[in-house]
Design a protein around this nucleic acid. Sequence first.
DNA 1: CCATATAACTTAACATGTTAAGCAGATTTG
DNA 2: CAAATCTGCTTAACATGTTAAGTTATATGG
Lengths: 178, 178
Amino acid sequence: MADKKPPNGSRSDPGGAPELRRAPMREFSRSLPMSLLRAREAVMRQFRPSLRSYGLTEQQWRILRALTTVDTIEVTELARVAFLLGPSLSRILRDLEARELIERRTAEADLRRGVVSISPKGLKLIEAVAPNSEAIYAEITHRYGARKLGELQDMLAELEHSLAAMELAGEGDAGPDE
Amino acid sequence: MADKKPPNGSRSDPGGAPELRRAPMREFSRSLPMSLLRAREAVMRQFRPSLRSYGLTEQQWRILRALTTVDTIEVTELARVAFLLGPSLSRILRDLEARELIERRTAEADLRRGVVSISPKGLKLIEAVAPNSEAIYAEITHRYGARKLGELQDMLAELEHSLAAMELAGEGDAGPDE
DNA sequence: CCATATAACTTAACATGTTAAGCAGATTTG
DNA sequence: CAAATCTGCTTAACATGTTAAGTTATATGG
């Protein structure tokens, strides 16, 4: 099902209406946000089936994966590392705890802070999934080229950096009433 | 970030703490999916406040934006262009129609197909938002560099292409029971 | 100390992502 | 042409994204 039918092909335009809006669809489709979205989706499409077969979502995998690299970690720090917003992380940790894939306690020195670690069961799951994921990643690297992949990531990091600089500058836009 | 406190209890890590799981956090954080996710998030962070001030989400904006480039479009084709899954699009179209930003009807030749177009009200909204978005995009282009931006998008497209080729090849992985 | 402001989550509410079903209209077959 | 099948959405159900409030615990100021 690679190809669909032709988009519209001026499907019977009886009135001969001189249309104004017609041209720049390509431009839209090539915008940076769309390019990034499609690229990421293309990548994740490779991993999702495998993760799903183990009952894990992408985000749950990110969290568990991050937890394997540390002994324990505070919730806020985990949010930054796994790149999740607080509320999402909060829900996911609740579920992962219910599934006994992680363990939680509170920091002694500051009862507000939660400290998380992966459980033996979680570690076992990760070890079962990891080979698949690594194989897929290796295949992507091979297909695209290790060098090119490195360049791409450098460029993405630089883009991040450029945008971080923008944040500090003026946000003199917003809407009409804000 | 760069400097958080050390993860676990040995906050004063004077040297030779032979921890087990410690090393590959960097690797995780540098994975391709994470790089793409962070880059895209950094980009969208620039646009969201402006869109939000006009009561639009990113996806709603994508749809309206796409609709400005055509006279009418079928739902399935719109889904491909705006890169949304059917169910998401279905919900969003329902809401946009309720807000009278779009208009719908069914194709005469095939009553299954829905045909969508932007309404005058929707067009007006787009015209109000567009200058902001274009200014932001121009600023991004300026900061990052037009040439580099072009290269980045070429590389992203090539990545997509490489991965599309993978789809056709073997998916001889999946989980244990699939 | 106590009132207030902060911090670190957690909940709530709404919108979208994702997969699986459901449904009506269209196409294919016998 | 009627049953089976396929298409093009739409709903349902569950998970996450996103912003705003709420809660409890610390830190601060007086």
